[in-house]
Amino acid sequence: MFEARVAQAEILKKILDSVRELVEQGNLDCSGTGISLQAMDSSHVSLVALLLKSEGFERYRCDRSINLGINMQSLGKIVKTAGNHDAITLSSEDKGDVLGLMFESTEQDKVSNYEIKLMDVDAEQLAIPVAEYSVCVRMPSAEFARITRDLSTIGDSVLISCTKDGVQFSTTGDTGSGSIVLRQSSSVDDEKKAVVIEVQEPISLSFATKFLVQFSKSAALNESVTLNLGDGVPLMVEYPMKEMGYVRFYLAPKLSN
């Protein structure tokens, strides 16, 4: 028996919104420690890794580990019908063929029940090695969204160059070019608005703009985002979710032929 209850539907809505455009279907791996999802986009350029820790749920029970193969679009559509403050309980029998969803309004005067058919998702599980990153940039997630959107009007790849002085995002396209530099915040009252740049070694890497734009749509998950860059490893973009876990996006770089 698997059962997980979140107090507020809002967080699940945000999580599903952040992954469902990149990932069509995936296996929710449910175990005693929580729920995780790992899935690549259809072109196998990026990978989403989601972790929802059991402590982040109001109630959590998972007697034995199970894989729930889910169409993310279908799940997203159903969860969207819940009120933001509704409690949501996900459930599945050990050998069940559906994922049950129960929404309860705060006044407990409305209860909605849905079932989604489970599917066989043939997803390769990839091992993500612990990487040594040369650069870690923390910045407001809204700023990251703005920058990627602005540069996407010009070019289909973005060069991210980082030194201890700042991080530069630049692009070139048929119509011209553009670049945006962010400097480390000198003093900020609000931690979440800060730009913090940690550099072991300066680095310059190119990435496909459209994926950065996709990732940056997760801004609702956290006011801050971290970009982790290293030579010879994919970019890792992380949106932490307080006690709940995280959504991480990995993106393979563009390499010189």
Binding site: M40, E124, Q125, P234, K254, L255, N257
Partner: peptide, 14 residues
């Protein structure tokens, strides 16, 4: 001109 690498060339099957 740069080519797009695949994520599977960095992360192997577990």
């Amino acid at each position: 001109k740069k080519g797009q690498a695949s994520i599977t060339s960095f992360f192997k099957k577990s």
